[in-house]
Simulated assay, not measured.
Amino acid sequence: MMQKKAIMGLALAAVMFAALAGYLVLRWAQSPVASGPPKPPSHIVLIPEGSTFQQVAALLKNEQLIRSRSAFLLLGKTRAIDRKIRPGEYELDASMSPQDILTKLLAGRVVLHPVTIPEGYSLTQIAEVLAAQQVTDTKEFTKLVRDRAFISTLGIEADSLEGYLFPETYSFAKGTKAREVIRAMVDGLHRVWGTELQEQAARMKMSLHQVLTLASVIEKETGAKDERELIAAVFHNRLRKKIPLQSDPTVIYGLPAFDGNIHKRDLSVMSPYNTYRVQGLPPGPIASPGAHSLRAALFPAQASYLYFVSRNDGTHQFSSTLAEHNQAVEKYQKQYFRKRTRGNLVAHGA
């Protein structure tokens, strides 16, 4: 009897020891790989598309972010997680417990990258920015921005989204779906296109498409912020008097290829964007205008100007009559280029 009790006591002790050992091992496995100062460096861990939870656990173990793959899988079972975790980049470090790591993965708190779309960029240039940042599939992006069926789902009736992708700084995760990127940029436009602008557009009997079109031309004509209302006044005056806009940026947009210099022959090209030949606005925006150009298109300066010419310093000379304009062209263009030509000849002769 005494022997039987001793055996039972030993067995119970063994079970308790095994349970304690298991508890200690589990606590060890569920503790951070690194603890105490200094804080270990962060790891950017990429969870590939379609990864299973088992593959995620193996990846974390290989990155030395968890102590035990099996313990992490067990933790996942207690959380009743789905087999897949949102793909993307996660910033993790070895001071995080497996519980903290799992919480971050389940919340999908991926690394976001700032992506700046400058004012005046075309769809082609925006695609180039996204390609450089590796944010999304640029082929899919390029296809969708000209897909009328998709565009209509955004509540926009246009042949392309040229001008509708608002220029600002966004935060995107790498591998973001092209649809999500586009929707975010269209939402950016709607945030700016508020009640005040909508009411002013209604008073001027202009649609959003027309406002974007005019604003995009203003955006491309000048980089000087304090000139945009004056540029807008010129174009509004010309539209009212039925004078062609004669805007070089619209001509350039309509060219199949542009070598960096606009030529006299380019002004004769038959194109709906050639505002030297076609009266009124071009058929659509030629770039993405910023908020200032949008406002300028709707709130032009009160001025009688019909002409402007570059002063070759980033600003323009504005004129109300053709005679004044011709004098400005002589001063800022013809004399300027004659001086440059003479200077080049002297330099070459020297």
Rank of each mutant, 00 (worst) to 15 (best):
M16R: 07
F17N: 06
L24D: 12
P37N: 10
H43C: 10
P48Q: 09
A58M: 08
N62R: 13
I66F: 07
S70K: 07
S70R: 08
S70N: 10
R79W: 13
P87W: 00
G88R: 03
E91K: 15
P98I: 09
P118G: 02
G120P: 12
S122K: 12
E128G: 12
L130I: 02
A131R: 03
A149W: 07
F150L: 07
T153V: 13
T153S: 14
A158Q: 07
E162Q: 12
Y164G: 01
Y170C: 12
Y170P: 09
K174E: 03
R183Q: 14
M185E: 07
G188P: 01
R191A: 13
Q200K: 14
A201E: 00
A201V: 00
A202E: 15
L212F: 11
L212W: 05
T213P: 02
K225Q: 12
E227Q: 07
R228F: 03
V234H: 01
L245Y: 01
T250M: 02
P256H: 09
N261C: 00
V278R: 03
Q279E: 11
L281I: 04
P285I: 04
P289N: 08
G290R: 05
G290H: 07
H292S: 14
A296N: 03
F299R: 00
Q302A: 05
R311Q: 13
Q317S: 11
S320R: 10
T321G: 11
T321Y: 12
A323W: 04
Y336A: 05
R338Y: 11
R342V: 15
